[in-house]
C-alpha cells in the first residue's frame, strides 16, 4: 500500500494500466484521496507474488509521481491481516 502524489495531468487509468504490467503484479487499486489544482493524492494498493518494487517505483516516477510513504507491506505464505483494534490501542 503506497501513498503517492502525481501531477493531475497524469491519467490514473494509464498509471493503473502501467502498474498492472509490472512483473509479479496481479491486481492494482488506484484510489484518489486528495485533489488539488495540479496534484492528485493517491492510495495505491498492489497485490501479487514477487512484486518488483523497483519497477513499480520506476513507473510512478516516470509519470512524474512521488512515493510519499509505503504504508503497508505483507510478505509470506499467507495474507497476515492486521487487526484494526491493535492500532487503536496503541
Amino acid at each position: 500500500m503506497l501513498d503517492v502524489d502525481i501531477p493531475s495531468s497524469v491519467s490514473t487509468v494509464e498509471l493503473a494500466d502501467r502498474l498492472g504490467r509490472v512483473s509479479g503484479v496481479k491486481a492494482v487499486n488506484v484510489t484518489v484521496t486528495d485533489t488539488d489544482v495540479e496534484v492528485l493524492g493517491l492510495v495505491i494498493v498492489i497485490e501479487g507474488d514477487n512484486i518488483n518494487y523497483d519497477d513499480v517505483k520506476r513507473v510512478i516516477e516516470d509519470l512524474g509521481g512521488a512515493i510519499r510513504s509505503i504504508d503497508q507491506v505483507i510478505v509470506g505464505e499467507y495474507i497476515l491481516e492486521l487487526n484494526p483494534q491493535l492500532l487503536k490501542e496503541r
Binding site: V10, D62, G64, A66
Partner: peptide
C-alpha cells in the same frame, strides 16, 4: 515545487 521535488527531476520522466 508543488510535489517538493528537486529542480529538474521531472525532465527525465515521460511527462
Amino acid at each position: 515545487r508543488t510535489l517538493l521535488m528537486r529542480r529538474g527531476s521531472l525532465l527525465r520522466t515521460s511527462l
